[in-house]
Amino acid sequence: MTKLSSLISGIIFGFGLTISGMVNPQKVLGFLNIFDAWDPSLIFVMIGAILIFSPLHFIFKRKSRPFFAQSFIISSNNDIDKNLILGASLFGIGWGLVGFCPGPAISAISFSNTNVYLFVLFMFIGFFLGNIFQTKKHFI
C-alpha cells in the first residue's frame, strides 16, 4: 500500500509544482533576482505548502503510527554544523546558476528536453559524490 500512496503523493506534488510555475527555471531565477526584477511567487509556494503541512503534521504526529507503516520517521538531527552550511550553500549556487532544485528538475523530465536529462543525470552523480564525501570525510 505504501507504493500506491508514494505514487499518488508524487503525482500531486508534481501537479502542484507545475501549477505553481516552479517547473520553469526562469520563474525560480526571477525569485532569486531580488535586486533587479523580482518575482516573489516562490514565497507563496512555500507559504502554501507550510500552511497545509505544518498544522496537519502536528495533529497527526500524535497518532501512534502512520496508516501503512510501522512508525513515523523524522530526523532527530538538530545539528547546525559545517556540512549543513556547506551543502546548503553549494546547493544554492547550483540553484542560482540553473534555476532547478531536485523536485522541479525531476518533474521537468516529462518535457523531454535533453538539457533537463543532462541536469538530472549530473544531479544524481552529485548525490553519489556527496554520499562519498559524507561517508569518507577523513579521506578529503
Binding site: 500500500m1 505504501t2 500512496s5 508514494s6 499518488i8 503523493s9 508524487g10 503525482i11 500531486i12 506534488f13 501537479f15 502542484g16 509544482l17 507545475t18 501549477i19 505553481s20 510555475g21 516552479m22 511567487s41 516562490l42 514565497i43 507563496f44 509556494v45 512555500m46 507559504i47 502554501g48 505548502a49 507550510i50 500552511l51 497545509i52 503541512f53 496537519l56 503534521h57 497527526f60 497518532k63 503510527r65 502512520p66 496508516f67 501503512f68 507503516a69 510501522q70 512508525s71 513515523f72 520517521i73
Partner: peptide, 20 residues
C-alpha cells in the same frame, strides 16, 4: 503559486500520514 503550494503541502502530508 499559492494553489500549487497548497497542493505540494497536501502531497507531503499524504506521504507523511500514509508512509510515515
Amino acid at each position: 503559486a499559492l494553489t500549487g503550494g497548497l497542493l505540494i503541502g497536501f502531497a507531503v502530508f499524504l506521504f507523511f500520514i500514509f508512509n510515515g
